[in-house]
Design a protein around this nucleic acid. Structure first.
Length: 270
DNA sequence: TATCAGGCCCTAG
DNA sequence: CTAGGGCCTGAT
């Protein structure tokens, strides 16, 4: 295990922010995090976090995963002092980080997320992992399931994932998995592209529209300019930004502001 | 019973 | 190009 001082980092806020679906509070008050085929537990007290993994693994993977080398205080300080709504939202969600998650896992996860609620999204993903993912054992001895590779889902029938409660999204996931294994879509290539081109490639996949593509860009490709607009964000923007959200002001990190607003709308209000 | 939840696809006009 | 119906499923 390794303990780090962490500013503007709140593991609970990250957990409920809705960008990751395989992080949860454990009985012991720590958080379990599954990313691809990796697993770690995190405990936080104030501004000190303990990661239950070796120092090498922390440096090689989890530091980047949690975006710990980035200065979110600077993002928050840049907010327009006259924009009380955004300042409040950022204050409430100041511990949020934009994680660097796996591209395939985010693609499948946000295909599932559409017209769906977070509780059920988590359930769907957990079902898929248990049915098609590799069973693994953590250092602590607890077992978990890795997220299945595209190959494992590509061979299914289009409706087979309905058994995992995906409903009509089943064919979206299966067809997209097939596009990837067939080489029709190349995730390594997409990863190498700048934001607009990467988004355009993602939009070619069956079941991926504007909102889902932006979520994938933000949470997997770490394109901080991606600004996913869902029903909640859309309503918040109408209420607080009649003349449109000042995207220009936050050029380069608009997606961070989107997350503060999203978190505030869903979890921040009394 | 109807509506909605972190949309997208497809078809008409 | 824009509007609108249909789609799985569970919660309210």
């Amino acid at each position: 295990m390794i303990t780090k001082r962490t500013d503007n980092f709140d593991i609970d806020q990250i957990c409920v922010s809705g960008q990751c679906f395989r992080m949860e509070r454990t009985a012991g008050g720590t958080y379990s995090v599954i990313a691809g085929d990796r697993y770690v537990e995190v405990a936080q007290e104030e501004d000190r976090c303990t990661f239950y993994c070796g120092a090498e693994e922390f440096e090689a993977f989890w530091r980047d995963y949690f975006d710990l080398s980035n200065d979110y205080g600077a993002y928050i300080e840049s907010i327009d002092t006259k924009d009380e709504y955004l300042r409040k939202a950022a204050e409430v969600g100041s511990g949020i980080r934009i994680l660097r998650q796996d591209l395939w896992e985010m693609t499948a996860s946000f295909l599932i997320s559409q017209q769906n609620n977070i509780t059920r999204i988590r359930k769907c993903i957990s079902n898929i992992c248990e049915k098609y993912g590799e069973k693994k054992e953590a250092l602590s001895g607890s077992t978990y399931y890795a997220f299945p590779r595209p190959e494992a889902l590509a061979e299914l029938g289009e409706d087979d994932l309905k058994e995992c409660n995906l409903g009509y999204r089943s064919k979206y996931v299966v067809r997209t998995a097939r596009s990837i294994t067939s080489g029709e879509a190349d995730l390594d290539y997409i990863r190498s592209l700048p934001y607009p081109e990467a988004k355009a490639e993602l939009l070619k996949l069956y079941g991926i529209g504007e909102k889902v593509a932006d979520c994938i860009c933000l949470f997997a490709l770490h394109e901080l300019d991606a600004f996913p607009v869902d029903t909640h964000i859309s309503q918040a923007l109408k209420r607080h930004y009649r003349r449109g959200f000042p995207k220009r002001r936050y050029n380069g990190y608009r997606g961070v502001m989107q997350q503060y607003i999203f978190y505030y709308e869903l979890n921040g209000k009394p």
